[in-house]
Write a protein that binds this DNA or RNA. Structure first.
Lengths: 212, 212
DNA sequence: CGTGCGATGTATCGGTCCGATACATCGAGA
DNA sequence: TCTCGATGTATCGGACCGATACATCGCACG
């Protein structure tokens, strides 16, 4: 999941670790707390080893301009490669079961602007099915096993059940919206993309709720 | 977290691994998918090594009664020890930051029937603060950084923000309820507790929502 | 009658990710 | 001047997951 998120973000612009973490937190703040450096740095190393990202020297700056005031600190800027972009496209399109769990879905959704409509629809529907199953499980417990559980546990289940119902409704809206044509996709900044932020086309709808 | 959950469940009755997993799924179904055996078995071993649980031979059954039809399969039943109960009490009472994240809070909440009122209140309030902070973070992003993000990402944030608001309201209700006296606590089955399920006293309130 | 499948049951392995920790620089304010 | 918070890179042990392996049991379907 981290791999997908990093590749996605680096497609918008090259970044160093710290910056990447901040952007990750901003983009995924709704679904996970804050990525740990204990995951981030090893993953960066892994992606680099696989050839999906490369180090881009932090402003070598014509060598003479400001000749190292105190030795120039070591910031490592990463940049996505062509292979990395392919890898991203592959990861974003293929949907396994982990695509539908809370974190997986959230990350995929966060990059919907770079996902084609058919895939968006597929993921939305898969997520809906997953949540519907969770909902049924909770209904079962609240129905058949209620007397075995204490009041607090039951309250927790009710809470969860309600969240499931809300999320299903939210997904229904998104799916309907998706089918009805309004379908934004970012134009893909491409290789020659020098620091251009993308605020993409039409909004998916207007609804609210949940917390994956 | 798993440690706490296992200790809590084994306090209700001895169980073998498979059964434990089922009960865990029923009790925590609202907050986590389903515990993996890859976590469960190693954790059981760890708890046993620490002396908090012991193996209880699966119905040695008077040795002669049904003299091994096909050699008797190997079910391993675990039972909590006195030290284990102490450990549970300690874990349930002490609240670190991990007590307030989604999973941690869920597990603690699920065992509120075995938690004293002061601790319940403390945890509920800590959770509220945590969610309020998350909420503020999302509001910031939706306010100050909105133009940098695409429509789908924004929708995700809105969704998350709404969930935070709902959860805060839910927690407010629970806190008010808790303060106003109605405070259930399970009588603690004790050492000599042979398979008695606990359906504990008064309900914490009646509300709905969320999904940690 | 068998035979195969789904539930029950225990267990390990590699991999992802987290939390704590360490260490260094920089600018702003006491 | 000195400290503090933000910036910045990095590692280590541990928790937990997903895949996989393997064995037994009962029952439904051919």
């Amino acid at each position: 999941m981290l791999e997908l998120a990093i590749l996605g973000l680096l497609q918008e612009s090259p970044m160093h670790g710290y910056e990447l973490r901040k952007e990750l937190t901003a983009k995924l703040g709704a679904i996970r707390a804050a990525i740990s450096y204990g995951s981030l740095y090893p993953t960066l190393r892994r992606l680099q080893a696989a050839g999906w990202i490369t180090e881009a020297a932090e402003t070598p700056a014509t060598a003479e301009e400001v000749p190292a005031l105190t030795s120039r600190r070591g910031r490592v800027v990463y940049k996505i490669t062509a292979e990395g972009k392919e890898r991203f496209a592959q990861l974003i399109a293929q949907a396994g079961p982990e695509t539908y769990d809370d974190t997986g879905f959230g990350v995929h959704f966060a990059f919907f602007a770079r996902t084609d409509q058919a895939t968006r629809l597929r993921i939305l529907e898969g997520r809906r099915r997953t949540i519907e199953e969770r909902r049924e499980g909770l209904r079962d417990v609240l129905g058949r096993a209620a007397e075995r559980l204490d009041a607090y546990t039951l309250e927790l289940q009710r809470h969860g059940l309600d969240a499931c119902e809300r999320e299903v409704r939210w997904l229904e809206e998104l799916i309907a919206n998706e089918r009805s044509g309004r379908a934004p996709t970012v134009p893909q900044p491409g290789t020659a993309g020098g620091r251009r932020d993308n605020n993409s086309p039409p909004p998916p709808g207007e609804s609210r709720k949940e917390r994956p």
